Amino acid sequence: MTSHPAERRLRGIAMRITSATSFALMAALLKAASARGVSTPEMIFYRNGWALLIVATWLTLGPGWKAVRTKAPAAHLTRSAVGLVSMLLTFGALALLPLGEATALTYAAPIIATILSAIFLKEQIGIRRWAAVAVGFVGVLLIAHPGNGGAPIGILIGVAAAFGQSAVMITVRQISRTEDVAAIVFWFTIFTTIAGAAMLPFFGSMHDRTTMVLLALAGLGGGIGQLSMTASLRYAPVSVVVPFDYLQIVWGITIGWLVFLTPATPLVFAGAALIAASGIYTAYRERARGKEPAEARSMPESS
């Protein structure tokens, strides 16, 4: 029996809220682990290694293992390498910046992706979308303001992470034209788990039980967030669910204040609001232009 369209949209929205919340908790857990001496390469390994359990369970109960077959292994390798660099930068920003600022900066990725799409994919960008890009960059500048207290190197890494995330969006957009989303998620998770394991002899160390629990929960949260984000698109269009991605910024600022005792400044609030408005409007314009890609999304994948 087919669900009513309104019911399907509500289900898609609920899944997107689950995704934003899961990613926010994952980021908070990784930041807590970083404060306990966990290196960024270790975060890569544990985040993806534990997420692999979620992905494997989903494949077994859902689309099946045939869905991971691919005719484009080189494309998956390129997409995974770009994603790995992006994830390293994203987790590095988490370690160096207050949680709210680090989260908000990564959400500049859709803005940058618009520019990269115009340059590399030759997409036509109208004046209103360019205006949205300009608004988003004003938001980035407000967050990067020295008066916010963020370490300059952390700000640079956070901005670099946003560029990395935008590159991921472009590569995913290209590969999703021919590859199943299950294959994209699975091979990326495999690649980053192996890459993280390869870095452990150089950057890994022993940790106490509490730290290992934090890392396990972060990985499971990341896996749940990834799959609920993807599943939301089965029930509702991107333009409907994208606004709920920005709940992660709200959660990041709130958790940063209540747990890490780093309240956001008014400039960070203003910058986050401008970035969110820019991203939501960009998604709306994609919908209006009839170019809303089936697997597109606003939320940074490396979250």
Rank of each mutant, 00 (worst) to 15 (best):
L141I: 03
I253V: 15
A270D: 14
L141G: 03
A288G: 04
S239H: 11
V159C: 08
L52K: 01
P98M: 01
T2A: 12
F260P: 07
M212H: 14
S232V: 08
A74I: 12
F163M: 06
S205Q: 15
R173F: 04
R69W: 08
A27G: 13
E42W: 04
G62H: 10
I255Y: 00
T60C: 04
S232D: 10
A197N: 06
S176D: 10
F186G: 00
I44V: 13
Q248M: 15
P110N: 03
L96F: 00
P266R: 09
V140A: 00
A272L: 08
A236C: 11
S205V: 10
P146A: 04
L77P: 01
T103W: 00
R173D: 04
T18Q: 14
E101G: 04
G92C: 05
H145T: 08
V82N: 06
R9S: 14
S80E: 04
Y107Q: 02
A14H: 10
A197T: 09
R177I: 05
R297L: 09
M15Y: 14
G279Y: 02
I170D: 02
A28T: 07
G83Y: 02
T254S: 15
L61E: 09
I44E: 05
A72W: 08
L258Q: 10
V172C: 06
E295M: 09
A104W: 00
L89V: 05
Q174H: 14
W58R: 07
G154H: 02
E101L: 09
V242A: 12
T171V: 12
N148V: 09
S302M: 13
P293I: 07
L267W: 12
V38I: 13
S302F: 11
P63W: 04
A283P: 05
S19W: 05
A35I: 09
Q124T: 13
A218S: 13
R79N: 07
A102T: 01
L59N: 07
G154F: 03
Q165L: 12
M169K: 03
W65M: 11
W65Q: 06
A72G: 05
L88D: 03
P300A: 08
G222P: 02
G136D: 03
I190S: 04
L274P: 00
F23T: 08
A72H: 12
L142M: 14
Q226W: 10
A294P: 08
I115V: 15
A276N: 04
